[in-house]
């Protein structure tokens, strides 16, 4: 495992983080860090705990053990107001965009600006048009979210996530359910916006090839632990059986095909015995 946290202060830093829903343990000791300016991908199969990881960094969940630090502050020590102050400098893209369905595209992007700033309407308008232009949807301001395609909705959500020029942008499955063209567009946008804003980005995804194109560093999560990490080139060249299985989409390997269960013969016979 080529994990090396020897840089000066990282923006996001997780140390030995554990998390459990009741008695079901999801994360079992995660160490992870994101430097400023970096785009980092967290990959893993469905149910491996990657989304939980993102929620911990966003402060929506609290670690049951270990430390989550964002921009130098320990999230477990923050009160509601401090957490909200920190979140103003974070943007998050939800899996299906989570646009407000009762507002137009324009109002969606303007929402964080109107809630958190006292800017006059003309300034808000200019900022919104700039953000929409950055995702190529300046002409779609008057549409309702229901009138957008999946890819367009994702791009509007992206414009909304960066409306306040955040220092950290989090993406929960930004590629899920997109056609190849939209997928490429969203991928390039993530990289471009990150560099333009001088922000850091965390992608949670299981789309290996698209993300390897745009990220600086990759963590592989399986069963609540980080099993591999490295730069995209290292990952492509990796001989680690887990990484190999994931990158080449093999059905069986270290990630088992079966959910843990008793052997099938026993299960079938058990009913009669």
């Amino acid at each position: 495992m080529s994990f090396d946290p020897t840089h000066d202060e990282p923006l996001v830093c997780l140390k030995d983080v554990h998390f459990a829903y009741g008695e079901r343990s999801i994360l079992k000791g995660i160490d992870l860090s994101v430097r400023r300016g970096q785009v980092v991908a967290i990959m893993g199969g469905s149910g491996s705990g990657k989304t939980t990881l993102l929620r911990l960094i966003g402060g929506q969940l609290r670690a049951s053990q270990g430390e989550v630090r964002v921009a130098g502050s320990d999230l477990s020590r923050l009160g509601r107001n401090d957490l909200y102050a920190l979140r103003r400098r974070m943007g998050m893209l939800f899996q299906f965009g989570a646009l407000f369905t009762d507002m137009t595209v324009y109002d969606n992007v303007a929402f964080p600006l109107r809630e958190h700033t006292d800017l006059p309407p003309e300034v808000v308008r200019d900022l919104v048009l700039m953000k929409l232009d950055a995702v190529g949807l300046r002409g779609a301001g008057a549409l309702m979210p229901a009138e957008l395609s999946g890819g367009m909705a994702r791009r509007v959500a992206l414009a909304r996530a960066v409306a306040l020029d955040p220092m950290l942008i989090m993406y929960d499955e930004p590629f899920a359910g997109l056609d190849p063209i939209s997928l490429g567009v969203v991928g390039q946008l993530i990289r471009r916006l990150n560099d333009a804003l001088g922000a850091s980005s965390i992608l949670v995804t299981h789309d290996v090839h698209e993300s390897l194109e745009i990220v600086d560093y990759v963590y592989f999560v399986s069963d609540g632990r980080i099993v591999a990490a490295g730069s995209p080139d290292e990952i492509r060249a990796s001989t680690d059986p887990f990484v190999h299985q994931f990158v080449h989409a093999e059905i069986d390997g270290p990630v088992p095909f079966h959910y843990p269960a008793e052997p099938i013969a026993q299960a079938l016979l058990g009913g009669r015995g």
């Binding site: 966003g58 929506q60 909200y84 102050a85 979140r87 103003r88 974070m90 998050m92 939800f94 899996q95 299906f96 989570a98 646009l99 407000f100 369905t101 929402f111 964080p112 809630e115 958190h116």
Partner: peptide, 18 residues
């Protein structure tokens, strides 16, 4: 309920709007 189901409430919370 629908806003909760489509994660709009969570998105709002993440934007530091209660």
């Amino acid at each position: 309920g629908l806003m909760k189901t489509t994660e709009q409430l969570k998105a709002m919370d993440m934007m530091a709007v209660s």
